[in-house]
């Protein structure tokens, strides 16, 4: 299966290891993965701040990068959701529509398209799962506590395939971490307080790592963990699913 890898800008710049893990994992599972070299960003930071109208150039660049891809896979629920919901371009609507329909967040691609039943992964640690909102409530990667519907979780389903992992949930299983894009700086006080509260519940479970499908939430949580010199670290789910620690 041919996959075009979508690497969100901040992962490209700050967390290349997450993209490497994603690429290696997809390759292990038999995909041919390419990385369109001119990609930059999905446009979400502008749009969520009210500047969707200013992101035409960015959108055009995204379309140019991915117009020929059959499957587009990205290791970020929130960026993928943004593309799915908001990628449009007045000159390129057909190509934009094709992209909106062909883009997947990593874990949903693994469970729904590749239908992965087992993984050659081993990660002998205590891991807390953070449900990132856009993946959960936007892409429906898992059921949510607000709704009265059957419960499921695609990230959890995959993590359970990892040998040696001990998966733990925080008390509030799906409360937002407070990252929220530019919210994290314009509403700094609330953002940090929300993050501190998430971190505390995971630390109460004595986890070694907090994982999730969105590196942006994890960057925020990791920033708080490191500031308080916690022994807990944040790690992207791709890095666990690709891990083979013997």
């Amino acid at each position: 299966m041919k996959v075009a890898l979508f690497v969100p800008c901040y992962i490209d710049q700050f967390y290349p290891g997450v993209a490497v893990a994603t690429m290696e994992l997809l390759e292990k599972l038999g995909c041919t993965v390419t990385f369109p070299m001119n990609q930059t960003c999905c446009g979400q930071p502008m749009a969520n701040s009210g500047f969707a109208s200013a992101s035409a150039g960015c959108d055009k660049n995204f379309i140019a990068s991915f117009r020929d891809a059959e499957y587009i896979v990205g290791p970020s629920g929130s960026c993928v959701l943004h593309i799915k919901e908001h990628l449009h371009h007045h000159e390129e609507e057909a190509a934009a529509t094709k992209i909106r329909q062909g883009i997947y967040e990593l874990t949903e691609f693994l469970t729904d398209v590749l239908q992965v039943k087992e993984l050659p992964a081993r990660f002998p640690h205590r891991v807390g799962l953070h449900n990132s909102c856009h993946g959960q409530r936007g892409l429906h990667l898992s059921s949510m506590s607000e709704r009265v519907l059957p419960s499921y979780s695609k990230p959890e389903q995959l993590l359970q395939m990892v040998e040696g992992i001990e998966l733990l949930k925080p008390k509030r299983v799906d409360e937002c971490c407070g990252f929220g894009g530019t919210f994290c700086v314009f509403e700094e006080a609330v953002s940090v307080k929300m993050g501190k509260d998430r971190v505390q519940e995971h630390e109460d479970n004595a986890v070694d790592f907090i994982t999730g499908v969105d590196m942006s939430c994890l960057m925020h949580l990791d920033g708080i963990l490191r500031r308080k010199q916690s022994r807990t670290r944040a790690i992207h789910i791709a890095e666990i699913l690709n891990a083979n620690i013997r």
């Binding site: 009210g50 909102c133 856009h134 409530r137 929220g180 919210f183 509403e187 953002s191």
Partner: peptide, 12 residues
């Protein structure tokens, strides 16, 4: 802007 757009409100 006083929101992370987490979507909990819409679902509750």
């Amino acid at each position: 802007f006083a929101s992370t757009l987490c979507g909990s409100c819409s679902n509750v």
